[in-house]
Write a protein that binds this DNA or RNA. Structure first.
Lengths: 255, 255
DNA sequence: CGGCAAGTTGAGCCAGGTCAACTCCGGTGG
DNA sequence: CCACCGGAGTTGACCTGGCTCAACTTGCCG
């Protein structure tokens, strides 16, 4: 955990992005925030300790992936949420006991924002406030959507939804339907409430059905978007369906 | 949808509760908000229409239960989230397409807050802002916790968690472990991602194991809190366990 | 190029979904 | 007041998606 060098914020994603929180701050706000905040880098597998969380409960992610994990008594583990660059995690007043543990899933750079300054900025800078509020709302609706996925969908359907979630959240909006999967198979399985074996089998099935193509372990390309969408939406009749016309399918416009 | 009579707000839960949003507003704020907001009563089963949602995207619940429902292509239905009195649902910029439909699960009184006034209050009144922010955070963590429940827990465990969720959220904190279940069996099943039959079987099992007692269809009493908690936490060895001392169990302090 | 973790494949099995029959209960109308 | 009705909930019997376990392959890092 180190002080944040003056030039660091310039390259940080939280600042750089037009929608980024720090991008909304004026010179004095940003220097005040920087002086009292800390930056740190987490290796895959390291948890944000509960003591640190008391001092530094507000965590903005500038790169990498952080997961919210819940552990059951008998060792079953669940990744309940994924936080990506730009997300601001507000753990004020939360103990890991109640809410799960924050664990990095890859090399992750975070900015530990000073809660007092954060609070002050939220109160005085309406633009920054709006960004933070909308980020929190997104987290809420994402979690709710994810609940819906977990509740009734089958394995293949969950995986299809997840692919769209990746596409929706990924920074670089490329046109050729290439998707970067930011987590490993095991993590993916824990996030979707299934077994790594099942994840593997589902990827295989989609590949065999020419719906996706596995470029490498963490990059896929969607070959047949409408069918993938139908699967994600829980349509059971995607198998014996002859594709006449892409646009013929009526499809929910997620993504 | 009607204008809000002057005296109505005095009895409203959103105001009355010390932590309530409207309770933080001064006289002019509250009258401004009231004048431009609308109150309405929803019968069980009615949805908040998408057109209304455009005009009135901010919904505060004063009584009853509202669910966020997702519908799959083949008719499978999921209740992804439950909103209870005091919750403020901010649907600005969301279409039901993306986020699911808001459907009342009982006779529900809501206050359709004027988005402009809401926004203005959020920007100028730090106390009200804090209430709204914390409410939204709670929604987020609730949804994340719920995801964790759905992902890896078994039916009995999910139901146990749900009972604690009810306890945590219920207004009247009674001491004798009486829990009011605010939704019907079918809804409960949809919320927990299981079948009504399974819900029924699980309640039966808990009752037979003397962990809970079913007072009537919507009221239960927890007879053995530690065991219920162990089940909710995913402990598999609750069956052949002889209770020597309540406090002997090491238990996570949810609830 | 060895060693280990991550991922994949196959075979068998079980929790819970499915379907059907039944009971319970609140509302309604004669 | 009671007979009727329909929806909600329950119970039982059966069946299947995906979990489990074990063996294998792949890929990464020193």
């Amino acid at each position: 955990m180190t002080k944040i060098p003056t030039n660091k914020c310039q390259h940080c994603f939280i600042n750089a992005d037009a929608g980024g929180f720090c991008g909304q701050l004026d010179g004095s706000e940003i220097s005040e925030l920087r002086n009292l905040s800390r930056s740190s880098t987490l290796k895959r597998g390291t948890a944000v300790g509960s003591e640190e969380l008391l001092m530094w409960p507000i965590i903005a992610i500038s790169s990498g992936v952080i997961s919210m994990q819940h552990l059951l008594e008998d060792g079953r583990k669940t990744i309940a949420a994924l936080f990506l660059p730009g997300d601001i995690i507000d753990m004020r007043g939360m103990s890991p006991r109640h809410s799960g543990h924050l664990i990095a899933l890859s090399r992750t750079e975070v900015c530990r924002m000073s809660p007092t300054i954060f609070e002050k900025i939220i109160e005085t800078n309406p633009n920054a406030q709006r960004i933070a509020w909308n980020n929190l709302r997104k987290q809420t609706y994402r979690a709710i959507d994810h609940s819906a996925d977990l509740a009734k969908k089958q394995a293949l359907e969950k995986l299809a939804s997840f692919i769209f979630e990746c596409r929706r959240r990924q920074r670089s909006k490329v046109s050729d339907n290439s998707i970067h999967v930011p987590v490993r198979r095991v993590d993916l399985a824990e996030y979707l409430g299934m077994q790594p074996e099942t994840v593997s089998r589902c990827f295989r099935e989609m590949e065999q059905r020419k719906i996706i193509q596995l470029m490498d372990i963490s990059n896929i390309k969607i070959l047949n978007v409408p069918t993938l969408r139908r699967i994600a939406n829980g349509d059971k009749n995607t198998k014996n369906l002859r594709r006449t016309n892409k646009d013929h399918f009526k499809v929910l416009s997620y993504g």
